[in-house]
Design a protein around this nucleic acid. Sequence first.
DNA 1: TATCAATTTAGAATTAATCTAAATGAAAGA
DNA 2: TCTTTCATTTAGATTAATTCTAAATTGATA
Lengths: 142, 142
Amino acid sequence: MKEKTKAQDICEELGLKLTPQRMAILGYLDGNTSHPSAEDIFAAVSRRFPGMSLATVYNTLASLKEKGKLLELTIDPAKKRYDPDTRPHHHLICLDCKRVSDIDRAFDLEIPDSLRNGFQITGNHIEFYGYCPECKGAAVKR
Amino acid sequence: MKEKTKAQDICEELGLKLTPQRMAILGYLDGNTSHPSAEDIFAAVSRRFPGMSLATVYNTLASLKEKGKLLELTIDPAKKRYDPDTRPHHHLICLDCKRVSDIDRAFDLEIPDSLRNGFQITGNHIEFYGYCPECKGAAVKR
DNA sequence: TATCAATTTAGAATTAATCTAAATGAAAGA
DNA sequence: TCTTTCATTTAGATTAATTCTAAATTGATA
């Protein structure tokens, strides 16, 4: 009997067809903590799957995001980054190389009504910034 | 004796020439809490100053940002937003209309070395998201 | 196996942002 | 005040990310 992959599980759960392109994208994202951009995903998946379209990457990301299986991070000024870990957590971005790293820790961010400006708050995300181990040394010169 | 505007003060402090375009942009930004995009600024300033170029807006924003007189916010997925209030503070974004509101409150966001992943952390920014007073009602239908 | 709707595809279109090179103009010195 | 100079402005081209379009393909179901 064939093993079922996580990618297959996800597609079935979401009611999406099991296409090879989708399997490859989901396989690449599974457990991936590099917070890749659409272009990164396209480059990686294209290597094993030549001829695929960048549009397919965007289509698949849109479906996953819509169904809550993927976070779209607005943290890199140049482009969107994606995170398959949808549990609440925060991020650390290197100001130099833009590497994004996870911060798995909860913070108490209660806000009194008086500061909410009438908003209904549904979530939060902390962006820590600084320099990654590789860029830290070079940062001295700045 | 002529009064000196804040815009003039800033230009002198930064060693920038006092051009009418710059004065208009700085005047528009002074005390502005709407977190405008470059396009917003261009639209507003063009009204009083027809014929100016969008490139001038980008040039001026780049100068101000570089000199630490302006924050570039990476909070709206569609475009950069700018904030003339450079004191540390956080933001609240409406998921519907993308309105951005200030949260003037300090949070204790100490991170133990063990969670820093080798990064040198230099700052942080919290993005709260939810629905603004105007969009809150409509949110029920979602 | 036939059907049908979902998906993929290439490429065009859109949009934000940056770049370029020529024209302009603010400011400092003569 | 007049010159000179260099920063700034400008229009338009360019780049890069993302979205859209319409035709071809294909997975899933009957």
